[in-house]
């Protein structure tokens, strides 16, 4: 059952990722991205990482992608304004991406399928469990993260502000 779910999710994930790249309209790209992120959240659920799955949907699909959408609409980019690259560049881009995939695959090909203990701790991905780790071992990085956000926020506001002359 879960194996079938894994494959469905994988196919949808890859399909939507491709559509992100090849859609003509930016808004469609955004929507496919959101779809792709939902699929990834599904993968997280399959892996018993429930907390991350929810956070993924909230942060990525809920916040980040809305930001993207908002920007696109704000800039009125929905129309197909993007002048196309030359075909040569497109071919080069596909070849390059394919080459990278080829290399990655060929690097991974020799890797053995390490047998995993099938009985794993199903509670590990729960909020309580992760919270214990986050607020004990990763306290300092977590607090640093707030500073990062603060500075990002200040930077974004500063950049987005209209210049007053």
């Amino acid at each position: 059952m879960s194996v079938i779910a894994f494959y469905i999710l994988t196919v949808l994930c890859i399909f939507s990722a491709l559509m992100v790249v090849f859609s003509k309209k930016p808004v469609h790209s955004v929507l496919y991205t959101i779809f792709c992120f939902f699929n990834i959240a599904g993968h997280f659920l399959l892996l018993n990482a429930q907390f991350l799955a929810i956070v993924h949907i909230i942060v990525y699909a809920g916040a980040i992608m809305v930001l993207f959408l908002f920007t696109i609409m704000f800039l009125n980019l929905n129309a197909e304004v993007e002048p196309h690259k030359s075909n040569l560049l497109k071919v080069a881009a596909v070849v390059c991406g394919g080459l990278l995939l080829l290399i990655l695959v060929s690097c991974l090909k020799g890797a053995e399928n390490i047998p995993v203990n099938p009985m794993l701790d199903t509670q590990m991905g729960m909020v309580k469990n992760l919270g214990m780790v986050l607020y004990n071992e990763y306290m300092l990085p977590f607090e640093m993260l707030s500073i990062l956000f603060l500075s990002a926020m200040v930077g974004a506001v500063l950049l987005g502000k209209k210049e007053t002359k």
Binding site: F6, A17, G97, L100, N113, L120
Partner: peptide
Amino acid sequence: NIISEVGINSYLWLAAILFSIGVMGVLF
């Protein structure tokens, strides 16, 4: 456990493909 059923390598393939699509998109 899903990993014991499909194998960790499946995840490796998936990640490699997704990453390559991302790279191709950046170039494309």
